[in-house]
């Protein structure tokens, strides 16, 4: 490890820890959110340093981007009547300094034990060689895509299911299923709207590109789906209300199609004597691409729906309050 690289890694490491602590002890929620988003972006730099571009893309887009948007969006409700984040340790603790010391020491000790365990970890060897050997039979050329959509496609399928479950769960939290048409039109802004007009088609194109790229290079359904969601969110911010104008039938199928099709494909070759999630080798490539296209659509739509529902949750309540 060369010196400048070591310096960069050290700096990133320090920054990560500082930002993480900052995100937890900042005095206002707004600062917490900002620190957390910066943390997510710094983390994607760390992924890049660790030769994990797929993860970097996913983290920057979902971990920092989407969740950051949701956090900032919820600030509207949380900071009503003061943005006091109340200190990390309760105000009523009599000896704040003492408890702070104890907690810091405890955290440090825990981290030390965990760090020791990592440092003493025997070399398991991993599955790199095995992945590489099986790559020609997987239908794709990029190892991460091969793992996600062929070797461990069962996990990936379940994970797309988690997104559907999370959408249902958010419906439960909001108290109704579906999206309400807002009573008044959105406040449109010429600058933001023209930006959205310019960016949205470009982003759709980028999503397609990432999807196609996933076959051989870093990229793939998740990253593409998130870019698609970003396009959706920008359009939503520009006041387009795409989701609200979709029919129930359309958004439900949109949310479910990735999961449903993946399942259908997983069982469709079983009458031919193949196993669950097993594809004929010659067709694996094209089939994976189709799965990825539909998964991208579903992921993009689901994440956009997260945001739209969130936005509606706050807005409808504040409207009720002012009435």
């Amino acid at each position: 490890m060369s010196l400048p690289a070591g310096l960069l890694d050290g700096l990133l490491a320090l920054l990560l820890v500082i930002l993480a602590v900052r995100a937890l002890i900042a005095p206002t929620l707004y600062q917490c959110a900002v620190a957390f988003i910066s943390f997510g972006l710094t983390l994607s730099l760390a992924w890049a340093r660790l030769a994990a571009p797929d993860v970097a893309l996913a983290e920057a887009a979902i971990g920092a981007g989407l969740l950051g948007v949701l956090l900032i969006n919820s600030l509207r409700d949380f900071s009503r009547g003061g943005d006091d984040a109340s200190a990390i340790f309760g105000k009523d603790l009599p000896t704040a300094l003492f408890s702070r010391t104890v907690i810091s020491c405890g955290t440090l000790a825990f981290a030390a034990v965990l760090g020791m365990a990592m440092f003493h970890m025997p070399e398991g060897g991993g599955l790199t060689a095995l992945t590489e050997a099986s790559l020609p039979h997987s239908g794709v050329e990029h190892p991460v895509t091969a793992v996600l959509l062929n070797y461990r496609s069962y996990d990936t399928w379940l994970e797309i299911g988690v997104l559907v479950v999370a959408m249902l769960a958010i419906f439960c939290a909001g108290g109704f299923e579906g999206f309400r048409r807002p009573e008044q039109g959105p406040d449109s802004d010429p600058v933001i709207e023209s930006l959205a007009r310019l960016l949205a088609p470009l982003m759709v194109m980028v999503a397609g590109y990432l999807l196609w790229l996933g076959k051989a290079y870093p990229g793939g359904a998740f990253q593409a789906g998130v870019v698609l969601a970003a396009a959706g969110i920008i359009l939503q911010l520009a006041g387009w209300q795409i989701i609200e104008n979709l029919s129930t039938w359309a958004w439900k199928w949109g949310l479910g199609i990735g999961f449903f099709f993946f399942l259908a494909l997983a069982v469709s070759f079983m009458p031919l004597g193949l196993g669950f999630f097993e594809y004929p080798e010659a067709w694996a490539g094209p089939l994976i691409l189709v799965v990825e296209v539909l998964a991208t659509l579903s992921i993009g739509l689901t994440l956009t729906c997260f945001f739209v529902y969130f936005n509606g949750m706050g807005a409808s309540e504040s409207r009720r309050r002012t009435r």
Partner: peptide, 20 residues
């Protein structure tokens, strides 16, 4: 750590799944 010609893709896939 376990990288050979490329980094071990299985943990990468696990992380992408985990992030979502």
């Amino acid at each position: 750590r376990d990288a050979d010609t490329f980094a071990d893709p299985v943990p990468h896939a696990m992380v992408i799944t985990g992030i979502v």
